[in-house]
Amino acid sequence: MSLDWIISIVENNWHLLLRAMGITLLIALIGTVIGALIGFVIGIIDTIPKTKSPKQVLLKVVRFILACYVEFFRGTPMMVQAMVVYYGLDMALGIDLNILTAGILVVSLNTGAYMAEIVRGGIVSIDKGQYEAAQAIGMSHVQTMMHVVLPQVGRNILPATGNQLIMNIKDTAVLSVIGVNELFFQTKSIAGANFRYFEAFFIASILYLVMTFTATRILRWMERRLDGPQAFEKKEVA
């Protein structure tokens, strides 16, 4: 009976499964946060207004390099990226990364490439009037970005960032190719040890769903908090 097997697998392996869930969440969360930071940096560099200063040449070079990075990580499967980063760093630079660190690095770089476009789109979509109003009270470009534009971008791209987080929770599964002990990898070994593939992966699917559903709810709550209260309190005026 499948149900008996499911119960017995959970009973005997719950601590392993929990630990694997923890690793999956850890990689997905840290990867999304670092990826978002990378995205913000690239998005900001991409939208620096044109000036006549000689630094423009440097800016062009930096933008070209960043464009190459974005194209590579958006244009190749994360599974392949994991292999290239993990084995490549070791071969080329002699850096022997801890498997977990390699996993986080791959997810961060992959997310960063997607987030760069999301952030750039978010910055471009802010009304020109917001920039002009900030300039008109004497703000520099940096101040305008810090106090006016980026806070609005952050709020506007939160749904897309949440999407990335959910994709990352699921896509950590591909890191099993370099042996990261996340939920898919752990499930595979439990399944193999018991010769029970359907039951083991059925449990895994439920666990993935619990993680993504929880993440969705938390993100919705964050969006509502950032929007502030629907109504405002009128101040008493004497």
Partner: peptide, 30 residues
């Protein structure tokens, strides 16, 4: 520009800030 106050056709209040913060952000930061 700090010596010139500008009022726009489309208002252009900072959407991320409250009324009070709209009025103090320039004073504090600039």
């Amino acid at each position: 520009r700090t010596h010139l106050g500008m009022v726009f056709q489309q208002f252009n209040l900072f959407n991320n800030l409250t009324v009070l913060d709209n009025c103090i952000v320039g004073q504090v930061k600039v």
